[in-house]
């Protein structure tokens, strides 16, 4: 017997197939662009009662990382937007006053030194490159400190890392973007955590702070 297939039945079958297809779509990734910024809470620490300058370079404010992964497309993560906020929050908690510095050649008066953060490297990894379920982001920072006399005190390297489990994001089409965004945000939180806890433990910084 030849059963006629109406358009509605075809549509229902199509819908069913679409849902099953979506359920199995986890393996398909074709690039992502992460552009939103992140708000890092102000760290809960006692501040040192001194004023420091903070110089956010144009290069840092516009930083981004772009990477092509074979068979998976182009991945772009914006990093610069959040940096001014990140360093103001962290150094605003570590010191009693943070003064914005536009140019290293014209330091404001009454500051103990100027902090110049930079991003010197960044990297990403998607689950297809590793055996795990994680989107990962690495950001390597350089925290340069220049004393009030213009002499460099230290150039401290901070390697920050963040990751996000792909199973936390249910929409397979939006998953790479959402997961990379979460991984990037976690890397920035990790940078804030490390700077908060390790800053005063760096020998050169400890010496500098003890002389002020």
């Amino acid at each position: 017997m030849d059963l006629p297939m109406t358009a509605n039945v075809r549509a229902s079958i199509g819908l069913a197939l679409l849902i099953v297809f979506a359920m199995t779509l986890g393996g398909c990734v074709s690039g992502a662009k992460v552009t939103s910024d992140i708000k890092v809470p102000k760290p809960l620490v006692d501040s040192v009662p001194i004023s420091v300058g903070l110089h956010i370079t144009k290069e840092l404010g516009e930083a981004f990382h772009e990477e092509k992964i074979v068979q998976h497309g182009k991945f772009t993560i914006e990093l610069g937007e959040s940096q001014k906020h990140l360093f103001n929050q962290v150094f605003g908690a570590l010191f009693s006053k943070v003064v914005p510095v536009q140019s290293l050649a014209e330091p404001p008066p009454d500051i103990a030194g100027i902090i110049v953060p930079r991003i010197i490297d960044a990297d990403i990894s998607i689950p297809h490159q590793t055996p795990g379920d994680f989107y990962e982001v690495w950001i390597q920072y350089s925290i340069r400190i220049v004393g009030s006399d213009g002499e460099e005190i230290t150039d401290w390297i901070v390697p920050a890392y963040g990751r996000a489990n792909r199973h936390n994001f249910s929409n397979p089409l939006d998953r790479p973007k959402q997961a990379l965004e979460k991984a990037r945000n976690n890397a920035i939180r990790d940078a804030a955590t490390q700077i908060t806890f390790e800053f005063a433990r760096q020998p050169e910084i400890r010496d500098w702070l003890s002389k002020i």
Binding site: V40, L44, R189, D190, T193, F197
Partner: peptide, 27 residues
């Protein structure tokens, strides 16, 4: 977020002894 950065992956207390020491911090 409320206790940032004391409960991050690198810093969260691993046992109740760590937690007991953490609570000694008045903040």
């Amino acid at each position: 977020d409320h206790l940032f950065p004391w409960f991050e992956p690198r810093t969260a207390p691993l046992d109740i002894v760590d937690m007991k020491n953490l609570v000694k911090n008045e903040t």
